[in-house]
Design a protein around this nucleic acid. Structure first.
Length: 656
DNA sequence: ACACACATCGTTTTT
DNA sequence: CGATGTGTGT
């Protein structure tokens, strides 16, 4: 067997100077708690770390230390939960150990799952030419299944998608899943089950995997193939997992199975920052870790190097109100600063004006834009602030919201590459065919089925159509004849031809903002030129979400902009000054999460602990609903606090 | 049977 | 802004 992973377990003799140098750095850069983790976390190790306690730093140094000891980055797996965190960590590791860490297996669980399934998937019957469905694609397929089985049923695809995902990620049975996630439709359990089965079957037929499948089949692979399990156990000499409190049952199982023999597993987490239960995350994984891995060493990092005592004090007060909390208060190290501000404004418009005014003032005082973060519970909460920032010409970047890849025009362009990669992918094919005049839902479906059966694009031109549809097909044939002569490896050329010959006109015909969209497509084509492997390009586009970030870091020229981010995406980040928007009952906590108020509170805790020195929490009493001002209540998270002590209160009034 | 233009409505959080 | 629904035209 000529397996690409075999025979890579080489450990070579430590270049002692390198180790010595590294030990000196550890001595200089880390505190005693952190140092202990870096030097001693062999075997199963659990690090309980508060916000701002330097846990990323600790993990990064641990990896650096392992490399200094002579371990190859190839044999280290570094897992995190969000792309944001993954990027952060990998960049920092790179900066620390200067030599190439290209080969480190780092990234989100989904990334690594994808990488493994492309190699080993066939062992459990996965054709490695699969396409990955993003959320929208997967919901469309679910909708199709529902339509076929129960055309009269008025269940939404949204709720079904959520249930399916929860089921796969938690491994619970349907009864439990419905009781927990959707008790109101518990009588429809059979429908849900049937649609799920159909959905699973269809995905196999189309040779596509959704996000959850990337984890689920990874798990199945470990479970069912002893040989592969052994290979992967051997391959990864060290596994490190960040944000362990946000992992779910399925991810816990993956870790367990990958550590059956080699027990070098380091997980880092903070139960107070667990904010992903909606996708099945459970702190059970932290709590039961010592049982699953007997002999676990537990480390604590409790000193906070990020925030002023005033901010920490507020954070501790917030989290105290959760009954289900397991660990420590965090302890401030920095010297005293000013009290957090509690700001009363009239409505969202005034909120936006206030935020922007203060940003301008801070900037005048010398605070860089990039040291300012504006955080919110839901994406649409930031609309007013975005408008105001634009109006005032302040540079900003939005994290969260529509991802680059999820934009319609990007998905349109990519659908062509996806069907070239995998002609069975009816979802992408339908999307592609619908771009042509005279072809709508129904015809697109027919065409995609013909393509799937024959795997021969030219077959579709033998079909009989009339009128507008015939004309549309003529245009398609014209384009296709130009594209089919280009080798698939040359996919950036394919994109360029398709764009110039057709899609550019399509954009101008259909979107008033076509100029912006054309710019995006230009970016996409430029990005595609950096890849020589189509699979990698497609996978990374779908998995690495480029949320709001410039695709091609333009020469790293002093990027200085205010960051607007959901709290979820802000985890692990920090700013000198932080604004938290809409501490209004119903918005934050979100009215949809009233049954999980403790998690919402943890979210508030996460938001507060992003601030280093200045914190503005904004609340108000009215809100516009269709030109009417209706009354709202301040968030319960404020009312439950002794806020007169914790905050300095501000009331905003407009100059007349 | 099908495509398509237009209107209306409501928005959690992420891979 | 996008998803969804309705009405009209081929």
């Amino acid at each position: 067997m000529n397996n690409q992973f075999d025979s890579e377990k080489k450990i070579f003799i430590i270049p002692s100077r390198k180790k010595k140098e590294f030990l000196e750095r550890i001595e200089k850069d880390l505190n005693e708690e952190q140092r202990k983790v870096v030097l001693e976390a062999d075997g199963p190790s659990l690090v309980i770390a508060g916000p701002g306690s330097g846990k990323t730093r600790t993990i990064v140094y641990r990896v650096g230390y392992l490399v200094a000891l002579g371990y190859s980055p190839k044999n280290i797996m570094l897992l995190t939960f969000t792309n944001q965190a993954a990027r952060h960590m990998i960049n920092r590791t790179q900066a620390l150990i200067r030599e190439s860490i290209e080969e480190i297996w780092g990234g989100t669980f989904h990334h690594v799952g994808n990488r493994i399934l492309r190699v080993y998937g066939k062992i459990i019957g996965i054709n490695e030419q699969y396409n990955i469905l993003d959320r929208e694609d997967s919901l469309d397929l679910i909708d199709e299944c529902l339509e076929e089985l129960f055309p009269e049923e008025n269940l939404g695809k949204g709720i079904l998608g959520e249930l399916f995902s929860y089921k796969v990620n938690t491994g619970k049975n349907w009864d439990e899943v419905l009781k927990i996630k959707a008790p109101q439709i518990i009588d429809k359990i059979e429908i849900v089950q049937k649609v799920f089965e159909r959905y699973e079957k269809r995905k196999r037929e189309l040779n596509v995997l959704d996000y959850d499948d990337l984890l689920f089949f990874w798990y199945r692979l470990l479970l069912e193939s002893e040989k592969t399990r052994k290979i992967l156990n051997d391959r990864f000499l060290y596994i490190l997992v960040d944000e362990y409190q946000d992992t779910n049952w399925l991810q816990g199982e993956i870790i367990r199975l990958t550590r059956e023999e080699n027990k070098n597993i380091l997980v880092v987490g903070d139960d107070a920052q667990s904010i992903y239960s909606f996708r099945g995350a459970t702190i059970e994984n932290i709590l039961s870790f010592p049982e699953i891995f007997p002999g676990t060493r537990i480390f604590y990092l409790v000193f906070n190097y990020r925030s002023t005592p005033e901010i920490i004090n507020l954070a501790n007060e917030i989290i105290k109100r959760n009954t289900r909390q397991y660990f420590k208060e965090i302890k401030p190290v920095l010297k005293s600063g000013s009290k957090p501000k509690l700001v009363w404004v009239r409505d969202d418009e005034e909120e936006a004006q206030f935020v922007v005014e203060v940003i301008k003032e801070l900037h005048k005082e010398g605070v860089k834009y990039k040291d300012i973060g504006v955080l919110f519970r839901s994406n649409y909460h930031s609309m007013a602030v975005q408008m105001e920032l634009t109006l005032q010409g302040i540079p900003y970047e939005v994290r969260g919201g529509l991802r680059f890849f999820e934009q319609a025009h990007i998905k349109d362009m990519i659908s062509l590459l996806k069907i070239l990669f995998n002609p069975q992918d009816e979802i992408s094919a339908q999307r592609f065919f619908k771009l042509f005049p005279g072809i709508g839902r129904a015809y697109a479906k027919k065409l995609s089925q013909v393509l799937k059966e024959s795997k021969d694009f030219d077959k579709i031109f033998q079909m009989q159509f009339s009128g507008r549809t015939l004309e549309g097909l003529r245009i398609l044939k014209n384009i296709w004849d130009k594209i089919k002569v280009i080798p698939v490896q040359n996919f950036s050329e394919i994109l360029r031809v398709f764009f110039n010959e057709y899609y550019k006109d399509y954009l101008e015909r259909n979107y008033p903002d076509f100029k912006d969209r054309e710019k995006d497509v230009d970016q996409l084509i430029l990005l595609s030129e950096r890849y020589d492997d189509l699979e990698k390009f497609l996978s990374e586009l779908t998995l690495y979400t480029y949320a709001g970030e410039k695709l091609l870091e333009e020469e790293e020229e002093e990027k200085d902009f205010v960051v607007l981010s959901t709290i979820h995406q802000a985890k692990g980040l920090e700013w000198h000054a932080v604004f938290i928007l809409r501490l209004v009952q119903g918005d934050f906590p979100s009215y949809k999460s009233m049954d999980n108020i403790e998690e919402e509170r943890r979210l508030f805790y996460v938001a507060v602990t992003r601030a280093k020195r200045e914190l503005y929490v904004i609340t108000y009493l009215t809100r516009k609903v269709k030109d009417m001002n209706v009354f709202t209540k301040p968030s319960i998270f404020l009312e439950e606090l002794p806020y007169k002590e914790l905050f300095e209160e501000w009331i905003v009034q407009r100059e007349i």
